[in-house]
Amino acid sequence: MVLGIGYRFIARYSILGTNSEHNTIMNKRILFGLIIITIMALVAILAPFVATYDPLEMDLSPEARLQAPSAQHLFGTDNLGRDVFSRMVYGTRISLSVGFIAVFISLIVGVFLGGVSGYYGGKVDSGIMRLVEVMYCFPTFFLIMMVITFLGPNIVNVMVVIGFTSWAGLCRLVRAEFLSLRERDFVHSAKVQGVSDMRVIFRHILPNAMAPVYVSATLSVGGAILVESALSFLGLGVQIPTASWGNILTAGKNYIDFAWWLTLFPGMAILITVLSFNMIGEGLREVLDPKLKERKG
């Protein structure tokens, strides 16, 4: 029963489902990105088994602090003698979960508002579009910083605030898709047969509007991870002693002259992760965008 519903949901809304135009949804970029992200996700899930030390365990003895990378400490130790590799392994959890959950929130808000806006049009549409324009007017990062300062810096607030400040682009995208799809004959036909508005939206229009949404959402995951890292770097994200890639960087910046490992490894981790998400997003765009396909011939 549950499996059946799950299967039908996937067939309807996923890019893996039956779709006429794209027989394959794989290319090299997507594959590359997926491999890296899968590894990252496994590291995050299996963090207690991957980490070689307790990420919070300090050793303040002079010889234990700021050790260069070695067999015992793969990525060296920080100024409090903690194992950087283990801290980064736990930081993966933060980065990935912030990325996914923030984008999930913005997806729900953006798809709902964009769908309503494009489907109903008129005053509802102008109202929502003015709201989108207001969102675009704020320098998002400073808005996030301000809200986090008021709400208090912790991981849940970071996810929620990033989610609720980054839906505007998705909203416009979904609205544009709905505007064109609602004039298609299969939608007219459904209405003639008496199908309810909600069913037309979720059964007929939304499944056909998902392709660009997936591209945009994948690209935003990378963006959300960057914002979280920046917030943590500024001390507004995940609070020490909990490890995140951003705050490992912050702690390392004071020792950048001689302890390069404190900044290089978290920096690389952020770079590779964001790059992987962008690769998947770009790859999906390549596969799903019919215009790009035509150009290639």
Binding site: A11, R184, D185, F186, H188, A190, N208
Partner: peptide, 8 residues
Amino acid sequence: YSSLNPRM
């Protein structure tokens, strides 16, 4: 081609 929902 446009009167049938491609996902049904």
